[in-house]
Nucleic acid binder design. Sequence first.
DNA 1: CTTTTTATTGACTTAGAGTCAAAACGAGGC
DNA 2: GCCTCGTTTTGACTCTAAGTCAATAAAAAG
Lengths: 237, 237
Amino acid sequence: MVSKLPRKQRERLEREELILEHAQRLLGRDGFQDFNLDELARAVEYSKGTLYLHFETKEDIALAVSTRVMEMRANLFERASAFNGSTRQRAAAIGYAARKFALEHPDHFCLQMMLKSNSFWEKSSPDRRRLHGIQTGRSFNFVNQIVTDAIVAGDLPPGTPAHVVTISLISTTIGSQVAGTEPDLQMLSGNGELSALMRLCQDRMCDGWQWRPLSTSSDWDYAAVESRIRAEIFTED
Amino acid sequence: MVSKLPRKQRERLEREELILEHAQRLLGRDGFQDFNLDELARAVEYSKGTLYLHFETKEDIALAVSTRVMEMRANLFERASAFNGSTRQRAAAIGYAARKFALEHPDHFCLQMMLKSNSFWEKSSPDRRRLHGIQTGRSFNFVNQIVTDAIVAGDLPPGTPAHVVTISLISTTIGSQVAGTEPDLQMLSGNGELSALMRLCQDRMCDGWQWRPLSTSSDWDYAAVESRIRAEIFTED
DNA sequence: CTTTTTATTGACTTAGAGTCAAAACGAGGC
DNA sequence: GCCTCGTTTTGACTCTAAGTCAATAAAAAG
């Protein structure tokens, strides 16, 4: 990332990064509705006009923040997918990354959902929408690669449709993150840990596709796998 | 529902209903951001001041709309849970209801998510929050009852934790509805039907818990079950 | 040091949420 | 009918915050 860009362009990117850092903080604290650009301008010590040199609208800033966060998620997935082990263990590593992300950004998908509402999408710039799609795609591909490997290795039944398995895993992971942070549902299901719920959902979905070894089988020692994931992939943090 | 309330109170409720109908339409069309109360007032042919006799804030209206929609969902679940058959077939009936709902209200959970963001929740009245929780609870309970019956009947392994199964099914259903309507993911996973994705996720999650008969077994003829569900439960619509 | 170009600003416009004094309505009495 | 008093409804008004753009400052060129 040591860029050889001309100073001007480099400074511009640095300032954009500064804006996004503060925007992320304020969005997290206040939610999109109460997130206000006068305060953001004050925080970054530039004028409101300058913010509009980088972003077209408030929505555009939120989309850029979401993309930034999605990029972090995809980076976690990237690291996880390098885990050395059976395909099911590698899936567990991605699952671990998804849970780690959920604990660090529990309300990310609130913002994410918002971005998809009718009025929102069209107010953000096409270019930023593209960048957002790319990060979503990266996450998808890391999961999909492991699923494909599993089919090739025979850990998933032959003829299993890779894309569908991938999207089902993503669905259940997003769903459990969302459901696990929703106060009404938390109450009803008896205040468990978000992370535990997510893991259960991921495991059962893999089992449902008959991804071997099943989490109920004697070949599967999750605790051991998790401590290896922690030690080998997510050491420092 | 033929109320014996004094005329005044009845008229008030009818007006509230009128407001919510229009609010739902406008929210669906424009999203929360662009949903504006002057237009709503014009649509219902009352002044903005009158809207504020019913609701404390714009957020409060959105929450009430969400509650109304959640009530419809719970009502679909209620009808589905009366299906006569094995526990797994009854689960399929609820799944069918969830998919029917998803097709009618594909972006409901966008609004729903929004309601949970920091700033939003505290702007709505406690009373409406309570009502929202009740409808969420109804949906939860219809699912949970079937899960409990399945454990008693031995269709799920003994000792399976009912609440966790229930929340996992809700998670995967919400997750697949959300993921299936997200443009980026739709593109990546190859533009399938929302309904087909949701069904797959539901089935595989049930299979993951070993809910018998498994969807892969020869005892399971989904097409036959679905046509019975359609005929017996969701005939007229 | 002067001119030209580029970057930055913050006062201004505008839209829309939320308020409240005044107007309209309605029930009861005469 | 019509006057009085309490209740309901209203829409003009205030205020906040997104988005604009003419004016200013800084940098580059001459």
